Amino acid sequence: MDVVGGKWKALILWALHKGTLRFGELKRELPGVSEKMLIQQLRELEADGVVHREVYREVPPRVEYSLTELGQALNTALDSLGVWGETFMQEIIANKAKEAAA
């Protein structure tokens, strides 16, 4: 659970499921994430061997992120969780609203 724990890691993995993304593209895929938090989460995912970071020595420098084989397997495992979330999202939102009103 450490590998996907936290607010942003599963969302980062889901965004990278589409393919290789540059840092700016990844940030746009995750509205609300700060640059600092995104960098931190990407570094942790890279250290776990789930995300690959490719640095191109250009001016300006270009950095791309992609899933490793391990990351792709993890995304496959998380797919059922995503389906569950989509299926029950409205119910969960309604439950939270009831709780907040009480």
Rank of each mutant, 00 (worst) to 15 (best):
Y56S: 13
L45I: 13
W84R: 05
E69H: 15
Y56N: 08
R62T: 10
L45P: 06
G6R: 06
V3D: 13
W14R: 14
A47I: 01
G49N: 09
R53W: 01
T20M: 11
E25G: 15
G85I: 01
L74C: 12
G19C: 08
W8D: 01
G71D: 07
L67Q: 06
E54A: 14
T20P: 09
R22V: 11
I92Q: 02
G19F: 05
L21M: 15
L11A: 13
L67D: 03
D2T: 13
K7L: 14
A47P: 01
V3K: 13
L38P: 04
A77Q: 11
K9Q: 10
W8C: 03
K98L: 15
G85A: 11
V33M: 04
L45D: 04
L16R: 07
E54N: 15
R22M: 12
V51W: 01
I39V: 10
I93P: 00
A10S: 12
D48W: 14
G49C: 07
L67K: 05
P61N: 02
L16E: 09
L81R: 07
G24P: 01
L67F: 11
H52T: 12
S34C: 00
L38V: 05
D48T: 00
K27G: 02
G19V: 05
L38I: 06
L45G: 09
S66V: 08
A15H: 03
D79R: 11
A97S: 13
G32S: 08
H52G: 02
Y65Q: 02
M37I: 08
P61F: 02
K18C: 00
L78A: 13
A73F: 07
G32Y: 09
W14P: 00
L74Y: 12
E54G: 06
L45N: 05
P60L: 05
E99N: 04
E44M: 08
D48Y: 15
R53G: 02
L21S: 07
K18S: 12
I39M: 02
E86H: 13
